[in-house]
Design a protein around this nucleic acid. Structure first.
Lengths: 335, 335
DNA sequence: CTGAAAGCGCTTACAG
DNA sequence: CTGAAAGCGCTTACAG
């Protein structure tokens, strides 16, 4: 009741030395099956709980992985965080999480905190505009770290970048709209200078260029509100635009609301394709066509890669891009 | 480069003993200002990083708080998790997170993991149907723990319950619909047997009872899909229903899509009130009336209470309910 | 206000 | 296959 039992208590109860208990705890193969059973019974009897702080101090891994996300409220990143956390748990690791809220200063603080806590590895969807200093600290601490879903133009040799083939996604969306909704196709959403916007827009720009068409874009925060406002603006100022590729589904969903408000029928008056294919895309009205970025599978596999790096010292490739595809639904199917 | 510096290295650099360094690290008031400055300089020079594992082992708090959520993908809980995590970070605590995915077995595993990691406190939005065993373990480990947003009928003396006044919310929503949309008001969503469903429905049942009306309910998972399907079903089978209180906004948002699909105009043919007032409620079309449960403020304040429990040993009250109010928007304003 | 000493609960070579 | 011993990097009384 009073004190947490230690391996010494377990050792006494099992009638072995504490080293043996430690070995059993680590699933070492050099312990007789019989002894192992004895120890496990003693663990139950004493209600022993492993003390990771002590183990960690002595050099064992902390069994904790840090996950830092630029915007955890965005369902795309929520899904990433959940799939990563659940995969880590499956492999026996706890997850320390932090939302940097797109703020490099907060991100720096989170990184420092996680280093202090001795995380075994780090996965970061970075905020833009940060300093390199915290990354230097990570490097010095020797913590395996993967950047995900957003490039910051950062050293990918030390910090591999795992992302999606956004460029291909932009091509698919643009081709589809050009074929079905004529030449006036616009790109909506995303801060113009961010690398991820450049990536998600590149396919659109290329396709428009190849077709000899002038690209039109509306840049801004990648959220519902911006989509909503831009839908109203397009209705008012650019009724000639008939096809829209959005930076992400959130923007597209906001546009759905805006066009509904304005009385424009999406799917017959105008075609829209989102980006990410979050769950809601198939559950709104009209259902939203979207570039499917299967972030759940992405999260699981990337977590596996990171853990393999930790456990087997297998350093991943400097850059990996997962494929994407286009899911066509009512928002871009002429009725 | 090779080895992480320790307080001994810092002590050498500063020309003091390691005890003094430790004292400075803990902001003890019994160190001369001059010495303190010396030590801080040495910390910078040596690029020292505090080793929490060692501190923790010696009895200091881990500086880690565990957060276990039944459904982290639900935006209401995402917002809770984010606001809690950010408040904890502000107060110098890291957050270990786990999504139990409504699975009591997973929840049990997460609790075990967090106890192992020596969390200083725990906040749990519980899954239903769990065993008491893991809670016994928490109790034995003496970890301050608050249950949030969902009651499980569990011992609130040991595990205080912080939630919202759902009952009052149900009353507000029902009164509003009864006044504006006639007597045929239904309740939609939520698993019938869950305590939280009973709480969120209680105000509706009472108001209907007082008005001498028969309640009508459609129970099921609290998600968009169920809302969508129920909207189609109501259109087909119960066109007499003119007002709807939903279990949460997700269900209401699904109904918006379903009614749009069916050609029923929400806000003129039928009135809907959601529950939670997640951000999307004000960014969909038509905008959704909702019972506002300010989960962001709730999360921040509850995190503060939990940390005060940890740091000042102030045990919170057994049960606390935050007030809610009704936000009326287009979905229930007759046009 | 600061230093010397003990000890937190583990893991890791090293013997046997 | 198992035991005795050292030590990880801190904190905490206890002297001075």
């Amino acid at each position: 009741m009073s004190k947490r039992p230690t391996i010494i208590d377990v050792a006494k109860a099992a009638g072995v030395s504490k080293s043996t208990v430690s070995l059993v705890l680590q699933n070492s193969s050099s312990v007789k099956e019989e002894t192992r059973a004895l120890v496990h019974q003693a663990i139950k009897d004493t209600r022993y709980v492993y003390n990771r702080a002590a183990a960690n101090l002595r050099g064992a891994g902390a069994g904790l992985v840090g996950l830092i996300i630029n915007d955890l409220r965005n369902p795309y990143y929520t899904e990433l965080a959940v799939s990563v956390q659940m995969k880590l748990a499956e492999r026996g690791f706890a997850t320390s999480i932090g939302n940097s809220d797109e703020d490099p200063a907060l991100q720096e603080q989170l990184i420092a905190s996680m280093i202090e806590h001795g995380v075994s590895a780090l996965m970061i969807a970075p905020a833009y505009g940060g300093d390199v200093a915290p990354f230097k600290d990570i490097q010095q601490a020797g913590i395996p770290t993967i950047q995900v879903l957003r490039s910051t133009g950062f050293d990918t040799a030390s910090f591999p970048l795992f992302s999606m083939d956004y460029d291909a996604g932009g091509i698919l969306a643009t081709e589809h709209l050009l074929e079905n909704w004529g030449n006036n196709v616009a790109f909506v959403g995303g801060i113009e200078t961010h690398d991820i916007t450049i990536e998600r827009k590149s396919g659109y720009l290329r396709k428009m260029g190849e077709a000899g068409l002038d690209p039109v874009s509306f840049h801004g925060k990648a959220n519902r509100r911006f989509g909503y406002e831009t839908a109203l603006k397009i209705t008012r100022d650019r009724p000639d635009i008939k096809g829209i590729v959005t930076f992400n589904d959130l923007v597209a969903l906001g546009m759905l609301a805006g066009f509904a408000q304005a009385g424009v029928k999406v799917g017959s008056d105008i075609g829209i394709v989102g980006f990410d294919d979050i769950e809601e895309a198939s559950q709104c009205f009209p259902q939203l066509s979207s570039v499917r970025c299967d972030v759940k599978t992405f999260g699981q596999q990337t977590a596996d890669v990171l853990l393999n790096w930790v456990e087997e010292n297998k350093q991943p490739k400097a850059q990996v891009r997962y494929p994407v595809d286009l899911v066509v639904r009512a928002s871009s199917s002429k009725t």
